[in-house]
């Protein structure tokens, strides 16, 4: 096998487990946020959590697959390492961006849920009887 094929193999062998690890972290630690956001409806939280993780996998594995091809074949081991490092670096940045985007989504959902429980910010100024109809 040529050097470029080895580059590809190492690239995939590193970036796919990396994606799995980030997705796993997100899945495990995002659950608490989601349960709180959905008023302790665990079933719904788990479902949303799962859907988010599926999206995360699709986007990241999709990116890893798209970015696989390397135009210039490396001539020696040094170039192989450089290529792998550059590719993995970009994958990590994409993963990081996706990860923060997910955290942003979690926190927004949670803020929404918290807002729902906020009491009126101002006290009433008078009281009137209400006729029942």
């Amino acid at each position: 096998m040529t050097l470029i094929v080895w580059t590809y193999i190492v690239y995939i062998a590193l970036s796919v487990p990396l994606t799995v690890w980030v997705a796993h972290t997100l899945h495990q630690n995002g659950r608490v946020f989601l349960i709180d956001s959905f008023h302790h409806n665990e079933q719904l939280a788990d479902s949303v959590n799962h859907l988010l993780v599926v999206g995360f996998y699709l986007i990241n594995i999709g990116y890893v697959a798209l970015a696989l091809k390397e135009g210039i074949a490396p001539a020696d081991l040094r170039q192989v390492l450089e290529t792998i490092s550059r590719k993995i670096g970009v994958v990590m940045l994409v993963l990081g961006a996706m990860h923060f985007f997910n955290i942003f989504l979690f926190s927004r959902m949670r803020r929404r849920a918290l807002l729902q429980r906020v009491p009126p910010p101002v006290p009433p100024q008078a009281h009137v009887p209400v006729a029942t109809q």
């Binding site: 009433p124 008078a126 009887p129 209400v130 006729a131 109809q133």
Partner: peptide, 30 residues
């Protein structure tokens, strides 16, 4: 007037009034 008897005393024509189903009245900015 039917739903909130005596609401006229709070002068609803002067400022916006919001009344909760429990009868709490909020005026103007509130």
């Amino acid at each position: 007037e039917r739903r909130f008897p005596g609401i006229d005393a709070l002068k609803p024509s002067e400022q916006l009034l919001v009344i909760s189903n429990e009868g709490s009245v909020y005026r103007g900015a509130h």
